[in-house]
Design a protein around this nucleic acid. Structure first.
Lengths: 220, 220
DNA sequence: GGAAGTAACCTACTCGCGGTAAGGTTGACT
DNA sequence: AGTCAACCTTACCGCGAGTAGGTTACTTCC
C-alpha cells in the first residue's frame, strides 16, 4: 500500500529518531516535567509518554532517573556558563567584568527558569549523591570563574582571600536572584547594580587592603 | 512470673512512651537518618525500627514522610533561631550585632551539622511544596532578623534597600558556612570577620548613602 | 530484490517502599 | 472487675523505578 500510514501525517507523530536526537528530546521533556512537578512527583512513565516512546528507552540511554536528572543539570550548566562567559568579553577592569557577569546571571535565572530551578539544588539532593555533586560542581565553577576574574585584574592577593570573596559573591548572587525574580519592578541590571553597591567596596578592600578607613581586619 | 521479662532489663528496651516523648524520639531518630542517608534513601521502616516501634505509629503522629521531615526542620529552625537570638543580646551597634549573629550562625552550622543539613534545602524540595515552604520560611526569618537589626540601629533607610542588604547577607552566610566547615584551620570567628570585612562597608554605604565616592546608584 | 545485521523500540513483568485497615494490648480510673 | 482511651501491631494495597526478552524497521551488501 502506497499510503504507508493512515492518519499519521499529523505533524510527524511517532517518528523513529536516531539516538542523539532522541536524547536531546528526552532531556528537553524531562527538564520541563522536573521543573513543573518536582523531581519526586515526576514519573518516568509520563516522561516517556510525552516523548512518544516507552520507558525502557530512557533507561537504555540514561541508566536511571538520577542519570536523566544529571543530564538535565549538565545542559543547564552549559547554558549558564555560556551566557556568563560571553557577557564578560570586552570588559577592561574587574569591577566592570563582575557587574556584567552578575547581570548575565540574573538575566539567565529570570529567562531560563526551568533550567535554573534544576540548578538551585532544590531538586537535586533528592536523587542521590551524584546529582548533588553535579550541582556543587556548577557552583564551584562559578567560584573559580570569580576567582579567575578577580585575580586576572588584581594580582598578588592571597588565594584564600580571593576564595572567600568568590564564595560570598556566589552566595549573594544566588539569594539575590531568588529575591529579584519575585519583584516585578526590578530589572536584571538594577539587581546587578544593587549587588555591586553592596559588594564591590568590600571586594576591593579585601583584594588590595590600602586606604580603607576604620578597617578592623581580623588577625593577620 | 515475677521476672516479667527475660533479657528486657537491657537499658529499658521496648518501653511504652507517652505521645510527646515518643514524638521527640522519632524526630531525633529521623533527623539522624535523614542526615545520614538522605531523605529519599531513608525508609520509614528503618526509622520505625530504630525507634523500637512499628511504622503506623509514625503515620499516626506525623501523617506522612514529609510531615516527619517538616517536624525535623521546625526543630532545627527553633534551635538556630535561639542560638542567633541569644548571641546578639548586649550588642550596642549594628556592626557588632551583625558580627555576633554571623559568628553564632557559623558556630551553629559547624556544631549541629545534622540539623543544618536539613535546613540547607538539600533534603527539602524532594518532599513536596510544604517542606520547601518550611525551608524558605527559615531563610525569610533570617532576612527579617537582619532587616530588624539594620533598621533598629540605622533608621530612615528605604525598606527595599534593607531587604536587598539582608538577602545578600543571608546568601553570603549560607555559602560561606559551607566553605568554612570544609576548612580545618578557620574558626567561626574568623569566618565572621571575613564576612564583615567583605560586607560591612557595603551595608553601611547602602544604609546611609553619604560620602560614597564614585557612587553610581541604579535609578531612583 | 532479498538476506543479514543492527539500531530503535515495545510488552509485561518484579520489587521496594510509602501509606492504610483493622484489630490487639496495657494501664488508669471508677 | 469493668470500661475506656492511648499505645501499638500485623498484614495488606498501589504506585512507580527498574528489567528481561522479544519485535520492528532501517541500512548494507550481494
Amino acid at each position: 500500500m502506497t499510503t504507508t500510514e493512515d492518519a499519521r501525517d499529523k505533524v510527524e507523530r511517532k517518528r523513529r529518531m536516531p539516538r542523539a536526537e532522541r536524547e536531546r528530546q528526552m532531556v528537553a521533556v524531562a527538564e520541563e516535567i522536573f521543573a513543573e512537578r518536582g523531581y519526586l512527583a515526576a514519573s518516568m512513565d509520563e516522561i516517556a509518554e510525552r516523548c512518544g516512546v516507552s520507558k525502557p528507552m530512557i533507561y537504555e540511554y540514561f541508566g536511571s532517573k538520577e542519570g536523566l536528572l544529571i543530564a538535565c543539570i549538565r545542559q543547564a550548566r552549559t547554558e549558564l556558563v555560556n551566557s556568563i562567559s560571553q557577557s564578560v568579553v570586552g570588559a577592561e577592569e574587574a569591577e566592570d567584568a563582575l557587574r556584567r557577569a552578575a547581570r548575565a546571571f540574573f538575566e539567565f535565572t529570570d529567562g531560563h527558569r526551568r533550567a535554573w530551578s534544576l540548578l538551585l539544588i532544590n531538586e537535586a539532593a533528592v536523587a542521590g549523591p551524584a546529582a548533588l555533586d553535579e550541582i556543587e560542581a556548577v557552583r564551584q565553577e562559578q567560584v573559580e570563574l570569580d576567582i579567575a576574574l578577580f585575580s586576572a585584574f588584581l594580582p598578588d592577593t592571597p588565594r584564600r582571600d580571593l576564595e572567600v570573596a568568590a564564595q560570598i559573591v556566589v552566595g549573594a548572587c544566588e539569594r539575590l536572584s531568588l529575591w529579584y525574580v519575585a519583584q516585578e519592578d526590578v530589572s536584571a541590571e538594577e539587581a546587578a547594580d544593587y549587588l555591586m553597591r553592596m559588594l564591590w567596596s568590600g571586594v576591593a578592600a579585601m583584594v588590595h587592603p590600602r586606604e580603607t578607613p576604620g578597617d578592623t581586619r581580623p588577625h593577620g
